[in-house]
Simulated assay, not measured.
Amino acid sequence: MARKRILITGAAGFLGSHLCDRFVQEDFHVIAMDNLITGDLRNIEHLFKLENFEFYHHDVSNYVHIPGQLDYILHFASPASPIDYLKIPIQTLKVGSLGTHNLLGLAKAKNARMLIASTSEVYGDPNCNPQPEEYWGNVNPVGPRGVYDEAKRFQEAITMAYHTFHGVETRIVRIFNTYGPRMRLNDGRVLPAFIGQAIRGEDLTVFGDGSQTRSFCYVDDLIEGIFRLLFSDYSYPVNIGNPDEITILEFGEEIIKLTGTTQKLVLRPLPTDDPRQRRPDITKARKLLNWEPKVSRAEGLKITYEYFKSLPTDVIEKIEHKDFTTYNK
């Protein structure tokens, strides 16, 4: 029996590379695609020797052609961290709009099922906690985060339109803060920022008074949730994340304890439109997918810290504050 063929965009990124691993292990033929604007080939180079893996260096904002049968598409091509989408706002908007349109057209032509990676950022700075899928959000479309938030909101809208109008099989995952090996230390998000600062012997930067909350999901748990959603029968958005909520101040203290650093937490002004709360309501995931996170934050952080410590010295470089502290996602 021939292997099922799956296209994974953003394949050299943090989540995309873990998805490549999972579907190779599940004996799919994986077609990986990335323009490497934020991805890194080192994340997937261990797969190059496999006969059921191939890589295309391509920007999905341009026309996408895949010869032969295609059964599934996972669209994970997008800058996902503040440092990236603030530097490349137009590309962020294009991959969420033009890129999604191109891939939905491909899914329609190939009769393939397509799952898109949306985000908890569609909820903006929420007025309810936790955030259920029915919450429509509190988003500033013209603020600095708008290029990412609105790209993802449009992505959901056009995906649902292709599902209802063209009958394309689609799935939508709303991803909450996720962490683990292959994150970039300098991508501006709070977890790698804290660990990077601790490793470099710098004080840990907290924005605002640190009372804002985040909920961190280990990458293996997230990948399992995405896998189950892809093969489910549910077409509307599903939150995948860990509902174990923690304040940024408390999280900073956890990182100090984990790393053994003697540095302290320092407060800086809260950025524009920074979400005060971020916690998923995963009722749907539990009911529809029989999914919930299994890896504790303590266990996941230990694995992630060991990964960051293993990086070459030149990677654990000092990042200028002006580059990454605009947002603390």
Rank of each mutant, 00 (worst) to 15 (best):
R214L: 10
P243L: 09
P271A: 12
L7Y: 10
I319K: 07
G143M: 07
I319L: 05
A109H: 05
K294H: 12
V315D: 07
T119S: 15
H75A: 03
G68I: 02
R276K: 13
A80S: 14
E156L: 02
N43L: 13
T313M: 06
T178H: 08
L185G: 13
S232F: 02
L288N: 02
K294C: 08
H101G: 00
L222Q: 08
D209W: 00
D149A: 13
V147W: 06
P181Q: 13
P293T: 06
F216R: 07
V122H: 05
P312D: 10
L19V: 11
I158R: 03
E250N: 14
E150S: 03
L191W: 12
H18A: 13
T100I: 01
S310E: 12
T325A: 04
I282E: 05
D203P: 12
K309Q: 15
F251P: 04
E292Y: 03
Q263E: 11
Y162I: 08
A2C: 00
I282Y: 04
R228E: 09
F308R: 03
N177T: 14
H166Q: 10
I246K: 02
I83K: 15
N43G: 13
G10Q: 12
N138D: 13
Q155Y: 02
S296G: 05
T119Q: 08
Y148I: 09
L204Q: 10
L36E: 07
I66N: 10
E299M: 04
P144L: 15
L185Q: 03
I37H: 10
G124W: 07
L301D: 06
N129W: 00
R153E: 04
F308M: 14
P181T: 08
D221Q: 11
Q131M: 15
S235E: 10
E306M: 01
D221Y: 08
F176N: 09
R189S: 14
P89S: 07
L115P: 06
R174S: 11
A151H: 02
N239V: 07
A12N: 09
Y179A: 02
R297G: 01
Q212P: 00
P181D: 13
N129F: 02
L229P: 04
Q263N: 15
D323R: 13
I6D: 01
I175H: 08
E306Y: 04
D27M: 03
I90H: 07
T247A: 05
P312E: 08
N111L: 00
H58C: 06
A2F: 01
I175D: 01
D220A: 11
D314K: 12
F14C: 12
S211H: 09
N177F: 06
K87Q: 14
F207I: 02
T159G: 03
D27T: 01
A32I: 13
L229M: 00
F194V: 02
K264R: 14
I240D: 09
F53S: 04
R279T: 14
T205L: 05
Q91D: 15
S81E: 05
I223H: 04
I319N: 00
R42H: 12
G39R: 14
A77Q: 09
D314A: 04
K294N: 10
T326Y: 12
P181W: 02
D220R: 11
M1Q: 07
E121L: 05
T38L: 00
Q69W: 00
